[in-house]
């Protein structure tokens, strides 16, 4: 039985307040700590490319319909472990709490935000001027070739440093031909130093952030495993009705091109994800069969594409 079931079972008010019945996610996370700790590092998901709050909402919103399948799953799929289904709510709540903990731990200080904001603007301004100077032949193209880009605090700091250095090195040539002033360069240099100092202070908090990040990956791993298991089972159970996405929607659906997990692991051309028309057991990501299709019958089309040919050439 899940933690949430135990907790809610002890509350028996005559007219239960749904809000009061909500289980504290942080408590569930605490109670799942031993299970989370058991996960091996190699088993953890590596890239959290999901919108966590949306994924949690999707799972929690799907629970009533998923639970309605429990008896049939237990009866028809003896190998199916119903604990995956029973623990879905706990796993979703734990993930929610772990995500909140990570956000709280990684929140930059207000001064850091302000300095980064100014440094970003300074970087863009200097880069724009430097690009013009490169085109004029007053700076070498190498001076901006190694810039790291505006993504990431350290990258911004490094870029400001490089830009200031590059411009100072040719200052006598540039001074009268650019809008850049000595005061701007001094300010940029001080800004970069301040940013470095603040990033150093932030590093002191990094162990907390790393721990929170690790805990979130563990919670996500548990949820994805359980949810995928449940989806696979329901897909099999309701193969003919083909309504898995109505009962337990994919957590990766509706994200446009951000389908990292599938994008980076497609079926190979040699074995594309398609199952011939045999009505065999479905597997996640496989082509569903086109059973008894007269369109699939040789001769149904006056000229069906034949394997080994170049169907669209000639």
């Amino acid at each position: 039985m899940s933690i949430t079931t135990i907790t809610t079972a002890t509350q028996t008010p005559t007219q239960p307040d749904p809000v009061e019945q909500e289980v504290l996610a942080s408590r569930v996370l605490q109670q799942l700590a031993p299970e989370l700790a058991k996960l091996e590092p190699n088993d953890l998901v590596t890239n959290v490319a999901l919108d966590i709050p949306t994924a949690v909402s999707t799972v929690l919103g799907s629970l009533p319909e998923i639970r309605a399948q429990r008896d049939e799953l237990a009866a028809k799929l003896p190998d199916f472990d119903p604990s995956a289904l029973d623990k879905l709510e706990d796993y979703a709540l734990a993930l929610s709490a772990a995500h909140a903990a990570l956000l709280a731990a990684s929140q930059p200080s207000s001064e850091l935000r302000a300095v980064v904001e100014e440094a970003t603007e300074v970087r863009e301004l200097l880069l724009s001027d430097a690009t013009a100077l490169v085109r004029r032949g007053l700076l070498s193209s190498e001076s901006i070739a190694d810039l790291k880009g505006p993504v990431g605090f350290r990258n911004i700091s490094t870029d400001v440093f490089h830009l200031v250095e590059a411009i100072r090195a040719r200052w006598t040539d540039i001074e009268s031909k650019s809008a850049i002033t000595q005061q701007e360069l001094d300010r940029a240099e001080r800004l970069q130093q301040r940013l470095n100092r603040l990033l150093g202070l932030k590093d002191q908090q990094t162990p907390d952030i790393n721990a929170a990040s690790e805990q979130r990956r563990r919670a996500l791993t548990l949820l994805l495993r359980a949810y995928d298991e449940v989806r696979r089972a329901i897909t099999y159970l309701r193969w003919k009705t083909n309504d898995i996405d109505d009962i337990a929607p994919s957590l990766f659906a509706g994200r446009g091109g951000r389908r990292k997990s599938t994008e980076t692991t497609p079926a190979t051309p040699a074995t594309p994800a398609v199952t011939p028309a045999t009505g065999t057991t479905p597997t996640t990501g496989t082509q569903q069969p086109t059973t008894n299709s007269s369109a699939a019958t040789p001769g149904a089309h006056n000229a069906a594409a034949t394997p080994g040919s170049e169907p669209f050439l000639g």
Binding site: P276, A277, S309, E310
Partner: peptide, 10 residues
């Protein structure tokens, strides 16, 4: 692949 699922081979 063909509509019935046979690999096209190229």
């Amino acid at each position: 692949r063909t509509l019935e699922g046979q690999p096209g081979g190229s």
